[in-house]
Design a protein around this nucleic acid. Sequence first.
RNA 1: CGGAGCAUGGCGCAGUCUGGUAGCGCACCUGGUUUGGGACCAGGGGGUCGCAGGUUCGAAUCCUGCUGCUCCGACCA
Length: 451
Amino acid sequence: MRLSRYFLPVLKEAPREAEIISHQLMLRAGMIKQQSAGIYSWLPLGLNVLRKVEQIIREEQNRAGAVEVLMPTIQSADLWRESGRYDDYGKEMLRIQDRQERDMLFGPTNEEMITDIFRSYVKSYKDLPLNLYHIQWKFRDEVRPRFGVMRGREFLMKDAYSFDLDEAASRAAYYRMFVSYLRTFDRLGVKAIPMQADTGPIGGDLSHEFLILADTGESEVFCHADYMKLSVPDAGVDYDDDAAIKGIMDQWTASYARTDEMHDEAVWNEVAEADRMNARGIEVGHIFHFGQKYSEPMGAKVTGPDGKDVPVYMGSYGIGPSRLVAALIEAGHDDNGIIWPASVAPFHVGFINLRSGDERTDSACENLYGQLTNAGMDVLYDDTDGRAGGKFALADLIGLPWQLIVGPRGLDNGEVELKERATGNRETLTLEAAVNLLTDWQAQTEARYGG
RNA sequence: CGGAGCAUGGCGCAGUCUGGUAGCGCACCUGGUUUGGGACCAGGGGGUCGCAGGUUCGAAUCCUGCUGCUCCGACCA
């Protein structure tokens, strides 16, 4: 992508209403525009990252055996009356009427609708296990939206729903999603720690929240230092092996890890003092096992091997991609701007042409641009007229992993400079060496974080 | 929903106390000089001062009502 043809409306100063760093940087980097309290447009750079986050989530859901569907944002109130939640959900649910004055709502979640889909088609235990998910916009009319897309009223959510014949199978489904989440956050380049959670209004008896540690996190967390060292299963993990999956789950839940809501001082004090980590975290995922809570009232039953009908056992599994984008920035930034994890960076490398209009630097950039693009790299080429300072500031702000600096002085020696955003390290090297370094880096990144 | 605050060009702000018909920086447009870490010179465009009433010869400024947005608390991906 050439910057001159892109749409990247950056700001030098953050709008006053932006309070936390991720919100400020998202506005300054031209990723989002606020349209109303808690409601945002996603501009090209923001959408680029959001799509990458979604795609990693999608790949890991698929790997764990979940199947993607897409349910509507608008739902009928009737479904929610069946579960009893139409009255229970309260003012957070945005209620609307269509022209026939039918009661509708903008979905805050989809348990009812997915249960309806399930009961319409699935009648036999032979069709289980089943896990359906979608990635769709939700609306919760929060009393107080804040922190940009971190807590918007409209937000993107991946929500998966598992269906199983009995409690044991349902727990196995829960464990698979648990492991899938470990892999998902790992690929996103962040450490997210599963913490024992309150099951809340959705109900159930088994629930974990996944939190990214960040100083600006909204929750206080207490966890054992072991979590810093635990390894995440690789792509070869066998989701059909219930025992192995359970083993990973056990390993990741063996030590103390709770948010302030569930914190128990007495148990916490049993952890060795040196191992106690008290930090702040951002909740980016939440999984629940709730058994027959919805299948029972909504009549989602399957016939078992004994010929008897039983309501299916269910769980639901949420990740907020839009919140994750903000959380990744909270976890990765410096005074100059964003530092993206390699796996979701909107572009791998930004080109800085120090002398736009100069025939030699222009053609060197064009040449490199062609080579890297052909090698499958995403390149943002700053081909605009302008001074170096502004170009560096922009490149730092939007946080691409690499900056390739091309100027007449370097070209006198057939050289360019390569700057790594995360470390700030700069290296002078030949054009070929720069191309090799970048393509090697991409191959390694793909091997480490790719699908 | 309870408490606090803000609203002046795309962004950041001054002006409001003490009423006299709107200004600064950045951004934008034109021309020129520039170009190795947010350039400089000259010229230019853009605002019914959130909305509606009221007071006044005169309102960004004073009064009343409303709306929007932000922050602190209870809730959540």
